[in-house]
Design a protein around this nucleic acid. Structure first.
Lengths: 254, 254
DNA sequence: CGGTGTTTGCGAACACTGTTCTCTCAAGCG
DNA sequence: CGCTTGAGAGAACAGTGTTCGCAAACACCG
């Protein structure tokens, strides 16, 4: 029977989940800095000290919440990748990028938890955590890899930009069987995606452009263009198809 | 005489500066979250309550520190712009971009203070603060504007990417007399700059590429390329000249 | 069934924190 | 000189993360 032995462990995992849920709620509402162990305990009718049976410290709790956030983002990206049409690499990339942005807008606190400053515990990059991170970037890199395989993108135009040292570094990170130029293209696209999301999420975009879906689409397709797209991307057509794929990612304009 | 009347006000400004200095030190060492009013007061032989004669709250103190950080970044960028050679737009841009990155690496806490999540006081975007922000982006946009004026860059190739709605938004932010395509090019470059710095500052770059000056240079010049550079940029030559301009921005490799 | 460990939770305590009062003292003013 | 304004001290309040000792509940084994 699965009776006794796992029984204790089961309820333990259940309360761990409950703690995480309560903490997540507090986090989403008042931000990371305002997450209070006592408030979490209060919300679930416990004593603060009891929480320490499940988490070593407040930082440890936040750390696992960050890990969950990584997983959540990776899930969103993988879902977007899976449901996107496979015959047009540009619309698939745009849909994945949009999913990333949408996730960030839906859960800004988690986003800052992930891409914000690590509170001095780089040491606890506990492989499980970096695995989730790599899952996210893997989705985006797969977009690039398949676009290259499909012949839509030829990153070799970037070859001339790579210094010997940089080529070496790119090779050292042998990722998804991409050429150094392909990896450089991925990094470039990823960089721009992250930068744009971060800028608009933290309110640094000038007013008329704040939250502009159009600017996002233009930049994301433009980034793909520069990565070595053979023929210039027809932005209008790709955007129209992406809008149709799952309804406009957001109602076209906030 | 400047004797009595300003005298009181003068010493007040002096202690304000002293408080800011002490707070800045704490901030740089232990991070924003760990900034403690009591510790600041302790460090300068004061009582915590006395600090409230000068700052309404801890958040207010942090806010003016953030404003100083904006100013510091803007100063660094303007200095880089001023000392860069004026006859090659690409090396000037690269030097400004490198200055931005160097500033971020030198003062990571300030950087997160600026580009991190605003702690719910968006309201206090007190014009003085956004002025400093605009001073920073103005430097970068000036790079673009002068490159266009010099004929090195022709952003009109981006025109075809602009949807009518996006063009309207870009026009609504009439900035530095740039065309919509020029503004879009600026945004694209700025986005990528910020994204790359943020990723490497917060430890999200894969190991072989972490802190790579070469990757940074390649991306920054590549971004300029895509903004509509007439002839493809000779990365090697531009980097060599930038290295010579003020010594390698960092000793070539950390 | 009853005894025995281990796990779980509680409650008090410590050392902090931001913030708000009241009170006092000294400096600047006429 | 007296008077007013401001700066600072000190105590207090309401929180916080964290630690420790103790008691109840549970799973187990004879």
């Amino acid at each position: 029977m699965t009776s006794t032995a796992p029984r204790r462990e089961r309820v333990r995992q259940a309360t761990i989940q409950e703690i995480k849920a309560a903490a997540h709620a507090q986090l989403a509402e008042h931000g990371t800095a305002a997450l209070s162990l006592r408030a979490v305990a209060r919300a679930m009718g416990m004593t603060p000290s009891a929480l320490y049976r499940y988490f070593d410290s407040r930082a440890a709790l936040i750390s696992v919440l960050a890990q969950d956030a990584y997983a959540s983002l990776a899930d969103a990206l993988e879902a977007a990748f899976a449901t996107a049409p496979t015959d047009d690499q540009a619309v698939r990339w745009l849909l994945v990028a949009r999913a990333h942005r949408q996730w960030a807008k839906d859960s800004p606190t988690e986003y800052t938890l992930i891409f914000g400053p690590q509170p001095t515990d780089l040491t606890d990059h506990s492989e499980a955590l970096i695995n989730e991170l790599e899952r996210s970037v893997a989705v985006m890199f797969r977009c690039m890899a398949e676009a290259i395989a499909a012949g839509d993108i030829d990153p070799s135009v970037l070859e001339v930009e790579l210094s010997p040292g940089l080529r070496e570094q790119l090779l050292a990170w042998d990722c998804a069987d991409l050429s150094p130029a392909g990896t450089a293209a991925c990094m470039s696209v990823w960089t721009q995606l992250h930068g744009l999301i971060a800028l608009e999420l933290f309110g640094h975009m000038p007013e008329p452009l704040a939250g502009s879906q159009e600017l996002f689409d233009q930049q994301m397709l433009g980034a793909l263009d520069r990565a070595g797209h053979r023929a210039p991307i027809d932005h209008h057509a790709v955007i129209a198809r992406a809008d149709g794929a799952a309804g406009p990612a957001t109602p076209v304009r906030a």
